[in-house]
Amino acid sequence: MSELLRVLLVDDHAMVRSGFRLMLSVEPDLEVVGEAADGMSAVIAAREHRPDVVLMDVQMPGMDGIEATRRIVEEELGRVVILTTFDRDDYLFDALEAGASGFMLKNAEPEQLIDAVRAVGHGHGLLAPEVTRRVIERMTAGPDAGARREPSELALLTEREREVLVGLARGMSNAEIARELYLGEATIKTHVSNCLAKVGVRDRVHAVIWAYEAGLVSPTR
């Protein structure tokens, strides 16, 4: 049986929380341990329940989801999946800076959301494909986009690790990278872990950002 993942639901709409609870409660490896309707309540609930994953809305009364994410990450109370909307890039990048480990669109299919909770709960950051494209556009835009200096950490990566990191930056899953490189998923998982350790980022979400900032992936890739 898979390890039980404890989930905290944060949204100012009770109906939304109820829907998420119903969706997650039927999964044998997921347990909803609490709910909160605003950012401050989310921080308090995270301190009490120590969830593995916090599903976090952004726009809420009082403390918003971005500040709540920052506090939860700083206190190491749980890993945060931001539920974002497609047209608010400012939320996305503010949440990245706050330390969120996952980003899903609110109109995602239930299976995608469940997979996101599992991925983040087991230590893997996650970006929805649409959100990945937003990150790519931001990272490759502006006057300095083509003039970034190659960071010293890049020299630490093997050729295969560079290929895996490029796959991550393109928004590919481990399975997709494995198929492209004709390797097993377990091997890709090892390469991903090595990449994160060598470049000094905590999860694949921030590895995507690092890859674009380092110029490892170009806008035309």
Rank of each mutant, 00 (worst) to 15 (best):
Met1Ser: 13
Val7Ser: 09
Val10Thr: 12
His13Asp: 09
Val16Ser: 09
Val16Glu: 09
Arg17Met: 06
Gly19Cys: 03
Arg21Glu: 10
Val26Leu: 00
Leu30Met: 00
Ala36Lys: 04
Gly39Arg: 09
Val43Asn: 08
Val43Glu: 09
Ile44Ala: 13
Ile44Asn: 08
Ala46Tyr: 09
Arg47Gln: 15
Glu48Asp: 14
Arg50Pro: 03
Met56Pro: 09
Pro61Gly: 01
Gly65Glu: 02
Ile66Thr: 03
Ile66Pro: 02
Ala68Asn: 02
Arg71Leu: 12
Arg71Met: 08
Arg71Ser: 02
Glu74Ser: 12
Glu75Arg: 07
Glu76Phe: 00
Gly78Lys: 02
Val81Glu: 04
Asp87Lys: 06
Arg88His: 14
Arg88Tyr: 14
Arg88Glu: 14
Asp89Val: 13
Asp90Met: 11
Ala100Ile: 07
Ser101Glu: 13
Leu105Tyr: 04
Gln112Phe: 12
Ile114Lys: 14
Ile114Phe: 11
Ile114Glu: 11
Ala119Ile: 14
Gly121Asp: 08
Leu126Gly: 03
Leu126Lys: 08
Leu126Phe: 14
Leu127Ile: 00
Ala128Thr: 00
Val131Pro: 03
Arg138Val: 14
Ala141Asn: 13
Pro143Tyr: 14
Ala145Asn: 12
Ala145Arg: 13
Arg148Phe: 12
Pro151Trp: 08
Ser152Lys: 15
Leu154Ser: 10
Ala155Val: 13
Glu163Asp: 15
Val164Gln: 09
Ala169Lys: 03
Ala169His: 08
Ala169Asn: 07
Asn174Cys: 06
Glu180Pro: 00
Gly184Phe: 09
Ile188Val: 13
Val192Thr: 02
Ser193Leu: 03
Asn194Thr: 05
Leu196Thr: 01
Lys198Asp: 08
Val199Ala: 02
Gly200Met: 01
Arg202Phe: 06
Arg202Pro: 15
Arg204Met: 12
Val208Trp: 06
Tyr212His: 14
Tyr212Ile: 04
Glu213Phe: 00
Glu213Cys: 01
Ala214His: 02
Arg221Ile: 00
